[in-house]
Design a protein around this nucleic acid. Structure first.
Lengths: 232, 232
DNA sequence: CTTCATATTATGTCTAGACATAATGACGCA
DNA sequence: TGCGTCATTATGTCTAGACATAATATGAAG
């Protein structure tokens, strides 16, 4: 086994088993190097990984300590809806309801913008209702895309990779119009997902998706560091 | 600026700006070392960080490539409810409704177990309804804890750090009993959060929390790698 | 033309040593 | 007692070189 990996795993095990409580001071790099019979650089690499994964904290001169607040961060993968539905083995379809070019007005979103409304279908039943804005100043190509044929999320994913963003998730009761579009009763709970996406500089798109509560869950996992941050 | 950091940031910028599309081959470590006038180890470290953050993929002999599917993973921090409410500047209170020791029966959860039901209050109004199981085989101390005085989540967070787990989030309509406990109408949408938590070996606890849809959102952020996986 | 062995190559990991940096703690002075 | 200074110390980063490993590319044999 790699010395670096071995050191990393043994320290991680000591922490996760509870043998080393939060705040416990880890031996210095020199001590560990002597104990494992390897160079300090190797120990340093192992500790760096543990620090990156949040398991320990390192302070110059002071040493390395078992990290202290185990705030649970969960990783939620947000796949493209077309993929998600295909993965379920259901047929996917997108239907645009309205596509409009906004030049004036003010809703807090940049202008010019494209405003798109539509419904995602799974197995020919409504699955989610989507309202979207795309900033044409950031994504000029979007003006030429055919959003009747392709859902804007799918198009954006292929054309504007590597963005940052923020989701807000809530439970809401649909409006009468939304309930009709989703083919559900007016008191069926829906999951609302508000996503703002940006790329160095400006907001690229904002989308509000309303999911039928009875056909959709979100799954998020948390783990104590190690393995890559981004499980493919 | 650190050479390593500089290399890392310049490559990340090339990717995020779209100049290097997914699949693009990154110069070899040797070429980069020569271009930046540093040792190969330094380049390797920079590329390792980019790979860990998911921005690139590295393959022996083949080289390093801009990673290809930018599946959006969002990081959701799941704070303790007591902390969350305190952070809002509201008074927090926990009220236990039932605490029971389960030895027989079978609901798919280990035995013996502690079954706890209660309500979380914010500013003296019901905020969330909680149903929990704790595996006494994994957490023997829990038998002596006072869950009338302290919410089980708070106690567990302090006593059982470093766990892994899984959330399932949905929108639901509350049952009549739940609506009454939360002080809402029977058709107010609620956010349901199902969390299973485990630690090397066994499931530690399972909790189902039902939030008033009008008083709670979940926030999740995604970003293209870099900064630590676990923002404190 | 296919198949298998081999050479090449880029990454993966490690070493031993160097200097930088930041924070602690001790010492001395007011 | 209180405060500023300075040496100490542990981590942070880097280097130049070495060997390991895996996968591609090449070439020889069938």
């Amino acid at each position: 086994m790699n010395p670096a990996r071995r050191i990393r795993d043994e320290i991680a095990a000591s922490i996760q088993s509870g043998a080393w409580r939060p705040g416990h001071r880890i031996p210095t790099e020199q001590e560990l190097a002597a104990r494992y019979g390897c160079a300090r650089g190797t120990v340093s690499k192992a500790l760096s990984e543990l620090a990156a994964s949040g398991l320990i904290e390192r302070r110059r001169k002071a040493g390395s300590f078992v990290a202290h607040p185990p705030v649970h961060s969960a990783v939620m993968t947000v796949p493209d809806l077309a993929e998600l539905i295909a993965a379920r083995g259901e047929a996917y379809r997108w239907q645009a309801l309205a596509i409009e070019r906004l030049t004036g007005g003010d809703d807090g979103f940049a202008r010019p913008a494209l405003a798109i409304e539509g419904v995602h279908f799974a197995a020919d039943e409504p699955f989610a209702f989507e309202q979207r804005r795309i900033a044409l100043g950031e994504v000029a190509d979007a003006a030429d895309a055919d959003f009747e044929a392709q859902a804007p999320g799918t198009w954006l994913l292929a054309h504007i990779p590597w963005t940052e963003g923020r989701h807000v998730i809530r439970a809401v009761t649909p409006t009468r119009k939304e309930a009709r579009l989703l083919g559900i009763g007016p008191s069926t709970a829906c999951l609302e997902l508000d996503r703002t996406t940006w790329r160095a500089g400006g907001v690229v798109t904002h989308v509000r998706q309303l999911f039928r509560g009875d056909r959709f869950d979100l799954v998020a996992e948390f783990r104590s560091g190690l393995e890559s941050a981004r499980p493919s």
